[in-house]
Simulated assay, not measured.
Amino acid sequence: MMARVAQPGRVTWIGGRSGRREEVVAVERVLVKPGGLQGDHARKGKRAVTLVQAEHLLAIGSFLGAGPVAPEVLRRNLVVEGINLLGLKEREVRIGGALLRLTVPCHPCSRMEEALGPGGYAAMRGHGGWCAEVLEPGEVALGDRVEPV
Rank of each mutant, 00 (worst) to 15 (best):
R47K: 13
Q38R: 14
G129N: 04
E81A: 08
G67Y: 11
R111D: 08
P108T: 02
H56R: 12
G120L: 08
P118A: 15
V25W: 11
N77G: 06
I83F: 05
V11E: 06
S110A: 11
L51R: 06
L85C: 08
R145M: 12
M124P: 00
G45E: 09
P137Q: 01
A123Q: 01
R20S: 10
Y121S: 04
G9M: 08
E139N: 05
L142T: 11
R94T: 07
L116F: 04
E92W: 11
T103K: 13
N77F: 06
Q7K: 00
P137H: 00
V146I: 08
V80C: 07
A98E: 11
E114I: 15
I60K: 01
I60P: 00
G126F: 00
Y121I: 06
V149R: 03
E133G: 13
P108D: 02
L64Y: 08
R111A: 12
G19P: 01
L58N: 10
P68F: 02
P137I: 00
R21C: 02
E92C: 02
E133D: 05
R111I: 06
A132P: 00
H107V: 11
G36P: 08
L31D: 12
M112F: 15
G117Q: 10
R10A: 12
P148M: 15
R75E: 01
V146Y: 05
P8K: 00
G45K: 02
L37K: 03
M1R: 09
I14Q: 08
H107T: 10
A141H: 09
P71W: 04
R76A: 03
V140Q: 01
W13L: 11
P148I: 14
R111Y: 09
R4K: 10
G87F: 06
L57P: 11
V11C: 04
A132H: 06
A141M: 07
E92Q: 09
G87I: 07
E23Q: 14
R94Q: 13
R75T: 06
I95K: 00
L37A: 05
L31F: 02
C106M: 10
V69G: 04
L100I: 01
E55M: 02
V32K: 03
G67T: 12
G96E: 09
A59F: 03
V52L: 14
A26C: 14
P118G: 15
M112Y: 06
G15D: 06
V93P: 01
V52G: 08
V11L: 04
R29S: 15
R20A: 13
N84L: 13
G128W: 05
V140H: 00
G65F: 09
G16Q: 05
Q53L: 01
R125N: 12
T103L: 09
A123D: 09
Q7E: 15
A42P: 08
V11H: 09
T12M: 04
G19S: 15
V146E: 12
R47P: 04
P68Q: 07
V5T: 14
G15C: 06
G129Y: 05
V24H: 02
G15M: 01
